[in-house]
Every structure is written in structure tokens, then in C-alpha cells.
Design a protein around this nucleic acid. Structure first.
Lengths: 92, 92
DNA sequence: TAGCTACTTATCATATATGATAAGTCTAAT
DNA sequence: ATTAGACTTATCATATATGATAAGTAGCTA
């Protein structure tokens, strides 16, 4: 089983996810996107249809390739049924 | 005095900002960026130098033109001395 | 095995974000 | 009135994100 497959499965379990997050020191934005989609219970193909794009584009984003625009990030979240929130903290 | 000038001044005052946020129903990402730069006490020119770009690009972002990439947003925050945090809530 | 679903990767054309430059606006001084 | 600082707007070339297509990988089930 590949790492991304494992994550995909694991993230559907809240306890596993919490443990994973504790261990993961460098938070990946790709995982953030994957998490939203999994919480929404959508396949990449489902989400692609909602976003009027191809599922390969979804895969590209969740694989950490690319550098999505604000619009793309917001579209992704909304299609998953979520509202994005941004905040900032002093850099340590 | 233009609206953006007013905001720029007002946001340096925490109380004013809080009141503004209460009234503002639709949160603008441009204001979010402006707020970070003002908190950092930087001019557009200062920030531009830190980001290795021109101050007109900063203006473009803060004026709500454009659709910044994740990289640009992170560069902006870091140059202002902040760490960005993303989270999401169920869409109502 | 074969066939299916979900996903990744590679490639390409096109749309768009970015960096740069020039010109204009506004405000506060001198 | 004019000079300077901070910012906005317009335009253009170039870099890059996006959408689309095709081919490959992995897991599952009959």
C-alpha cells in the first residue's frame, strides 16, 4: 500500500488523524486538501465534477504538485462543503 | 480620503479594526493582507524589497486585483513576520 | 485470470499570475 | 505651489497554474 493510500484510509478515522497530526512536524497543504475531500466523502472524480475540472487536476493538487491559487483553494473547499478560514500567528 | 487610505489608518488601531470586522459582513482577502502588512509596520516598498518584487505587485494584491497563489500568500505572510494558518468550517 | 474503481504521472495548449516599468492620485508637509 | 512619500492603475513580457488527454499503478472482487 502506498503512503498516500494509507493516509487516505487513515484520515477517515478521526483518532488516527489526530495521532498523525501530532507526529507530522511539517504540515503539508496537500494533506489539508485531501482531508477536506475525505471528510466530504467524495472521490476525486466526484469533486472534479463539482469543480468543473478533471480528476487529474485534483490529484495534482493533493499530490503536492502545483501551487494553487486562492480561487482554486476556495473552490476546492466550497465543493467539499466547507468555508475556508485564514489566520496568522507571529513567526517564531 | 479614499476608502483604502481610511482602512490603512484605521487598521493600525486595534479597537477600530475590531469594530470594522464586526460591521464587515463579507471578509475581503485583500484586507487580510493589508492587515498583516500594517501590523508589521511595513510600507508596500519595504515589503516588496523583502519579497523580491515591486511595490506595485503588493498594491495589486491589497487592492483585490489578482488571485494570488499559495506561494505568494505564504511569502507575503512570512515577510510580514507571520505564519499562516488554514482551517475550515462546515459551510452554512 | 480479467475487469473495475480510485488514483498518479506525463505532456501539452491555453489562461492567468507575476515582475517590471511608467504615469497618475492623494496627503502632508515645506 | 511645490516637493516628497505612499499608494493605485495600466500595460506588457514571461513564468506558471489550469484543464484536458493518455497511459500507468494499486487494490479489490468475481
Amino acid at each position: 500500500m502506498s503512503l498516500s493510500k494509507l493516509k487516505q484510509k487513515a484520515f477517515t478515522n478521526e483518532e488516527v488523524k489526530v495521532e498523525y497530526d501530532k507526529l507530522e512536524n511539517e504540515f503539508s497543504f496537500a494533506n489539508f486538501l485531501l482531508e477536506m475531500r475525505n471528510k466530504a466523502g467524495l472521490t476525486q472524480a466526484d469533486l472534479a465534477k463539482l469543480m468543473n475540472t478533471s480528476f487529474t487536476s485534483i490529484s495534482r493538487l493533493e499530490s503536492g504538485k502545483g501551487n494553487p491559487s486562492l480561487k482554486t483553494i476556495n473552490n476546492f473547499a466550497h465543493a467539499c462543503g466547507f468555508q475556508l478560514n485564514f489566520n496568522y500567528s507571529r513567526l517564531s
